[in-house]
Write a protein that binds this DNA or RNA. Sequence first.
DNA 1: TTGTACGCGTTATCAA
DNA 2: TTGATAACGCGTACAA
Lengths: 336, 336
Amino acid sequence: MINKKITLKELAGILKVSVSTVSKALNDSYEISEATKKKVKTAAIKYNYSPNLLAQGLKTKKTKILGVVIPDMRAPFSIRVLRGIEKEASAQGYNILTCFSDESLSKEKAILDMLSQGNVDGILMSLSKESQVEQYFDHVNTLISNGIPVTLFDRVDERIQCDKVIINDFDSTYDATKLLLKSGARNILFISPISTTTIGKNRYRGYAFALEERGNLKEKVLHIEEYRDFSDDLTRILKADKIDAIIAANELTGISAINIATRLGFKIPEQISIIGFTNGILSMNSNPPLTTISQHGKDIGKVATQKLINRLENKNLDFTTTVIETTLIKRGTTRN
Amino acid sequence: MINKKITLKELAGILKVSVSTVSKALNDSYEISEATKKKVKTAAIKYNYSPNLLAQGLKTKKTKILGVVIPDMRAPFSIRVLRGIEKEASAQGYNILTCFSDESLSKEKAILDMLSQGNVDGILMSLSKESQVEQYFDHVNTLISNGIPVTLFDRVDERIQCDKVIINDFDSTYDATKLLLKSGARNILFISPISTTTIGKNRYRGYAFALEERGNLKEKVLHIEEYRDFSDDLTRILKADKIDAIIAANELTGISAINIATRLGFKIPEQISIIGFTNGILSMNSNPPLTTISQHGKDIGKVATQKLINRLENKNLDFTTTVIETTLIKRGTTRN
DNA sequence: TTGTACGCGTTATCAA
DNA sequence: TTGATAACGCGTACAA
């Protein structure tokens, strides 16, 4: 019995003016006198009017909704990016429609299909593993050529022409490896659950390049499956190879490495140093706290959103790629 | 240059039939012959037709979008619920529009305002702290009386008449406390960053009741601020009071308690047992792994979504409240 | 300064 | 079995 929804037409009826007068008054059109504007606006508040977004969208072709496609919501990094996106979007008056592709190409296709049916003004997305493995991007390119702006973040591909926001994955592990070398490590193990993604490859390259540059050091790489227990593999390697440092290609792997090594009796960081990725809640609360490469997930989300909205509101911009620099956050799992 | 969007009208033009015929054919109306149905459908695929969701929504008053309002996306529990929601929703052909109230009443109002403008068929939400402190729920009740179905989960209030999904917070801490007592603990500290919420109060009550039942034991409660470092307070208490067990009212607090106690040289669980909340990624990866009360966040999300969709598709149901039972997951921070 | 009339892309009603 | 036509709620060119 409280304030029921009211339409423009009904409001016009009450005020005994035409629909268009009400519409224009509400939109502050110069054609309407201040007097009626005021009258209409107060009535709008009194009768609790608010425009129907669907009708408005249908008319203006703008919904003020941004589609977000994320491959894996279990990843703390994804959540940080999502927070950045949501915050920036809502600050700019946009809402977000969040979808998860579960790293699957077919789900990704279905999502883009749905999102291209008029609901969203633009799309923020990170490619699924499967898309990257299959190197299939037609669905994304179709979307773009259909006129829906897309901003890719984190997992991107050069075969897709659009705005992009990435981190310098190569540099991140290159720097991390150098730090470990400087602190005396000589047997650095690289553990990666994301070897199939472009990002995973770049992180590996940064590691490998630093070793090669130093000369005389052997690469040790452990490819694992995401969200799978790898304690047996790691235990074997730790015992056999006199590993004195570990770089993990994502946060969870870094945390698990700490736990496994600790359980085996290794002192961290005295005997084994560990560096992980993502300055997330896990790293801050591990024991000891994990030294990580911060990807500034929130910034990525923020910048990606800004770029997308910028494109929505200003046509004919050139596509650009923004690189967010990573930062090494030193905590308890590395020496000095 | 690829498959451009096409409308019903254009498709009708191509096929030289009327718009309504195309619409009906696509919707498998009994009025249309199989022959033309087939013809229309293949043409629809060929010309890449898909309905404009806005127009469809405007017409049918259904958008197949569920609004989700969550107070705090940093909470691992929220994320688990969100996953449950997303999964169930997408399984049932719904999409979700995710919003975060940041525990703020004014943001919560703004969000509901926006969501009530036609975009969503129904809303899933958990109340913000501020709403619970202020005991202000008019915005939610207005929404409901405006005809938008709402399902509340986790943080609910009896002054809001709608479907609800909750856990038995009282039982959860009651059981946890009993377990600790049984294992020999006599000085159990309860740490809570959520004392202002109904849930926080119930969790406290479960703890207090178990102590009272046992008789002769003193309550020890530490109220803290969420996401704030409480090591000083805890250190003081741990040193002064010979605490032998801790119950933390949420996951992050439990993890922090482990770290602080460990840093002070206490052996866990030998000297201090710890039980936390939420069977999340943090608890599984702490050192030692945290014994937790699993709230089955994904189930909560799933059930809440099912209830909402059920209401959307079947009118005039009575409101019900579903209680999801918690489970104690014993891991490394408790004895035997 | 205000009002009329049309269209956005659909579905639904009614006639043919 | 098919087709005109109105309507959903809004914005806007154009007329008044």
